[in-house]
């Protein structure tokens, strides 16, 4: 069984929910990124998602866009990201997921990417612009050692959610609203949609992301899922401070504290 799924299950079995934290690779500081990642783990993150920067991230709002641009300017690429994962792996066994857009991976070489992911200790992969319909052609058979985490959205009909649950491994990434990452919650998350996720996704664990920035946001979705994903709120906080990033680590602690004893 998948390492990611096992981890989520173990946490859920204790009565807690899972916290997955997103960081842009090499951001905010190329030099101490490994240290930041480990501190994020120590502050309470159960899973780490590392974003491979791309010039044209169409699923991302302005915060993650800016962090990607800065990372690119500093020369962050896929090879360096694998180096980070390898370093983090020396000190932590918690699941690490790479998140990135298709084109840099295509340019790196699909087969090479799959091999190097596994070698460096990556557990799963999220590529938002490779929907399930395109996965077979894109991934071929190179990714047997990695979880391919697929997404569902409020526009996804029930039958398709079932199909995606069947295809996905690790967990299903449930996009909370129709929109991009980091949108302030002027849009209410539709409870019927959360209800549908809860009842329809049976094979996989479910993590809800997009627009979750505080324990208060988390509270609304927790009854319907197995955990949350926080990205833009973390990146936004990192933009505002320097190492040792105490406020950001506090945010991670607060978020994780809100996830204990939920079941």
């Amino acid at each position: 069984m998948s390492i990611i799924k096992n981890k989520i299950k173990a946490i859920n079995d204790k009565g807690d929910k899972v916290l997955s934290v997103f960081l842009t690779s090499g951001f905010p500081n190329k030099i101490n990124f490994t240290e930041l990642a480990l501190n994020i783990f120590n502050a309470g993150a159960d899973i780490l998602e590392i974003g491979i920067p791309f010039s044209d991230p169409i699923a991302d709002g302005s915060v993650i866009q800016k962090s990607s641009q800065l990372a690119l300017k500093k020369g962050i690429n896929i090879s360096l990201t694998f180096d980070y994962v390898q370093e983090i792996r020396k000190f932590s066994t918690k699941p690490i997921i790479l998140m990135g857009y298709a084109n840099p991976i295509l340019a790196y070489g699909i087969e090479r990417f799959a091999k190097d992911s596994f070698k460096s200790g990556v557990n799963g992969l999220i590529i938002p612009d490779i929907p399930v319909n395109e996965q077979k052609v894109f991934y071929k058979n190179h990714f047997n050692n990695l979880d391919i985490i697929s997404l569902v959205a409020p526009t996804t009909p029930v039958n398709r959610i079932k199909m995606i649950d069947g295809e996905s491994s690790g967990f299903v990434y449930c996009v909370s609203i129709n929109g991009i990452t980091g949108i302030n919650s002027d849009k209410e998350i539709n409870e019927n949609y959360l209800e549908t996720i809860k009842n329809t996704i049976t094979k996989n664990k479910t993590l809800v992301g997009f627009g979750i920035s505080s324990p208060n946001d988390a509270k609304k979705v927790l009854p319907f899922c197995d955990g949350i994903i926080v990205g833009s709120a973390i990146i936004k906080s990192l933009f505002k401070e320097k190492s040792p990033y105490q406020k950001t680590l506090n945010l991670v602690r607060e978020l994780k504290n809100s996830l204990f004893n939920i079941n």
Binding site: I58, A59, A102, P128, D129, I130, P131, N133, E134, V137, S150, L151, V152, A153, P154, T155, T156, P157, R160, I164, V175, N178, G179
Partner: peptide, 14 residues
């Protein structure tokens, strides 16, 4: 091999 629908899931059904 060209074309396709390489967009986030939110756009697939629309």
């Amino acid at each position: 091999k060209y074309g396709g629908k390489f967009v986030p899931e939110t756009l697939i059904t629309p």
